[in-house]
Every structure is written in C-alpha cells, then in structure tokens.
Write a protein that binds this DNA or RNA. Structure first.
Lengths: 146, 146
DNA sequence: GGTTAGTGTTGCATAATGCAACACATGTCC
DNA sequence: GGACATGTGTTGCATTATGCAACACTAACC
C-alpha cells in the first residue's frame, strides 16, 4: 500500500476518466436505445448475462428500490421481453427471470447500435491496444468489491 | 480497417465491459453521492470541468431536454452550489455557469468517497498498470466522435 | 431597424423512484 | 408437524425526473 504521489495521481486519473466514460455511456444509451431507457437496457443486459437472477438481485445491484424493479419488470413482461422461468424444485426464494427470444433480439439490436460507436472510437487503435484495453477493463470489473 | 475476427472480438469485449462499468458507476453514485442524484453529480462535474459551459451545452452532452436541465440547475442554484457568472461583454448567447465554493466542496466530498472505491479495486495493480489503464481510458475518451 | 435564430423558462402530462404496508412463500426452530 | 421469523414481490401514495410545446427574451445577421 505504498502511497506515493504517482500512484495517487494515476488513480485520480482513472476515476476522472471513468466518470466521463459513464456519463457519456448513459447519454449514448438515452440517444440510441429508444424506446428503451438506460435502466431498461441495463435490465435486459443483466438478466441476459446473469443466469438465475431474481428481481431482488437486480435491485441490490442497481441500488434501486424493489418496487421500482418490480414495476419495470412488469412493463418489460407486458412487452414480451422478459419472463419468469417455470418453477423448479430446487429454486430457493423468489422467482428466476430470463429473457424471451424477443428480449434477446431487441437487446442485440440496441447493443449493435451502441457498439458501432465504440468501434468508431477505436478506429485508430491497434489490435494489441484493443486487447490490452479489454483486458484491463475486465480485470477492473472482476476485481474485489470496494 | 482490416476486419478480422480478433479485432471484432476485442471490440465486443471492450463494449461489454464498458456497459458493466457504467451500470455499476451509476449504481455507486446512487449509493454514495446522496443527497445528489447521478445527474446532479454529473452536472457538478461537467460545470466544474467545462469552463464557459451553458445550460444548453449540458443538455446536448447529457442528451436531456433543456427544460430538465433548467429545472435541475434551478435546484442546484437554490442549494447554493451553482451560479451564473456575471455578464461579460464578449459573452455570446446564453449564460455561463460555474460552481460556487460550496458546490466545489460538495462535489469534492462526493468524488473522494467514490474514488476510494476505485482505489480499493486497484489495490493489487502495479503503478505501471494503473498508469497504462488511465492512459487508455483517456485516449478512448479523447477519441473521435462516433 | 427588422428579421432570424438560439437560449432559458414555465405549464402540463407522463414516467421513474422511494417508502410503507401488505400478502405470500420459504426457511428455522422446537 | 406447527409456530414463528425472514425474504420476496406487489401495490397505494407521494415525490421527483423528464419530455413536449409554447413563450419571452436576447443575440446575431442582413
């Protein structure tokens, strides 16, 4: 835990850039994911990539009230994008969510549009730089809870 | 623009990790920036780091309606966090915003709390890795519009 | 000076969110 | 097995956030 200046400066830079990145990502989702809102898009992604997740898990991860998630899921359910998996015997409390085929398709379309923006921003990057960047992002996301 | 598989895979990974990163950043801000919302926190940061910015610039960047920004700024103004700079002769249209001393302090407190989470996640990273990560994030953010 | 275009504000409607209370299901303990 | 505790999802109600349209005001333009 050597707390030298260079390390602190690097951390500050990382945080600052991440705040910019996140603000722009939210704005981009607002612009490009219509008619999905940022939270709705995040719901589809989370459900699609978190097998076995329940509404309360989402609420904890998103830091939103359970009632908010419940209502959002009701909406997505009425749109035919999300559904409850049939009850299984070994299922614990709560109900397990999953995407419908339509949900997968809609999310894939939204992702493709936003990914094109990322592709454009990485236009001048070498293959190695892209791989290193992806690895660093993955390492950060997989890191210890803070 | 050689479009080989490895490059595409890297870009997909970058996008996927960024979506996770942004979702968590928004959740973290919800949890740690109280009583500031994510948008309010973003407003303070944007105004603090974008000299000469006006309400309409924020609306364009955040992809939110001007009326929404106007009301949010009214609230932040009543809280004594944001103010209009006195009219200058060479000022163009609109009114230029800036943080008050209280606004700077409140934002700094909020940033410090969130930055500690980033610090914790980078605990095992070498100084060089942190510097490289910060550089890559900066390069990405500074890249061409998409 | 008159016109055009950009900026910020407000009324109204809608969507998103939180809190509290509740019903229901699951787990625990005896 | 039954009583109790705990977790999950839903709904009523209030508050806040957001969008759209209309407006007033101001700066730019010819």
């Amino acid at each position: 835990m050597e707390d030298n200046e260079q390390r602190t400066g690097g951390i500050n830079a990382v945080y600052s850039e991440m705040e910019t990145l996140s603000r722009r990502a939210v704005a981009r989702t607002r612009r490009m994911s219509a008619p999905l809102s940022f939270v709705e898009h995040s719901l589809l992604t989370f459900i699609g990539t978190t097998p076995g997740c329940r509404a309360t898990d989402i609420a904890a991860d998103f830091q939103l009230n359970r009632s908010t998630i419940s209502r959002q899921l009701t909406t997505l359910g009425e749109l035919g994008l999300v559904e409850y998996t049939p009850q299984e015997n070994d299922a614990g409390r709560g109900r397990v969510l999953r995407l419908t085929e339509r949900g997968r398709q809609l999310r894939e379309r939204s992702v493709a549009a936003q990914r094109s923006v990322v592709t454009s921003r990485l236009k001048e990057w070498s293959e190695e730089d892209i791989a290193a960047f992806a690895a660093a992002l993955g390492r950060f996301n997989a890191g210890p809870e803070g």
